[in-house]
Design a protein around this nucleic acid. Structure first.
Lengths: 106, 106
DNA sequence: TGGCAATTTGGCGTAATCGCCAAATGCTGT
DNA sequence: ACAGCATTTGGCGATTACGCCAAATTGCCA
């Protein structure tokens, strides 16, 4: 495995890792519909605001979301419009393996 | 957030998490081309065989790969054929955010 | 300027992850 | 049955993730 490929793998894994958390995945799904400020997401998720803020920071550092300050509030939005495809892919992965997974974990 | 959605989020996050590691992502990419036995993957990755075996176990538990024992060797293959879409999605996410990410981390 | 709300940051304890080593398991051929 | 290869499992130390609390920061408005 050459180091170019390893570098790409690291970046890709980083993107996946950023979304590989229920709260963060929820955030991404919601931002795919519309932009939201931190307090909105906080009440939706039902966790501490500092926790949500850190999740957003992870997504931001992975290049998935962007933030914009308007007044005293910070609004987050998806940085890339192509995430919808990824959702579909994950969904289809689930559909493909859902039954087998259910059987496997019985 | 109702508990049905939370359950789905947990499963989706689990799938993403299983792939959110450079070695495991490498494995998935290779298995998308052809099935491989553990020792092949071990030499390709260059880690301890026990480490590779555990990575494969994670992918298996997430429903991403399936294993088949042939003789004394175990061959792994992708469980779902639709993972190609997901790769494309991750790639496009990278393309969309690569430049901005590079600038952001300067 | 003082106070209040929104957000971020630092820190802490707990839990999970990672990679290697050693040991156990399974299969093959003699 | 035995030796040897392929694979898995258990465990250990080190690193990282997670969620909450408290404190710091920033902007708004009286």
């Amino acid at each position: 495995m050459n180091r170019e490929r390893l570098a790409k793998l690291n970046i890709k894994a980083q993107v996946l890792k950023a979304m590989a958390h229920p709260s963060r995945l929820y955030i991404v799904e919601e931002l795919a519909r519309q932009e939201r400020c931190v307090c909105e997401l906080t009440t939706m998720i039902g966790a501490d605001m500092s926790t949500v803020s850190k999740h957003l920071s992870v997504l931001k550092q992975a290049g998935i979301v962007a933030d914009e300050k308007r007044g005293s509030m910070v609004f987050y939005r998806l940085r890339v419009p192509c995430l919808g495809k990824l959702f579909e892919s994950v969904e289809s992965v689930l559909e493909c393996s859902a039954r087998e997974l259910a059987e496997a974990t019985k």
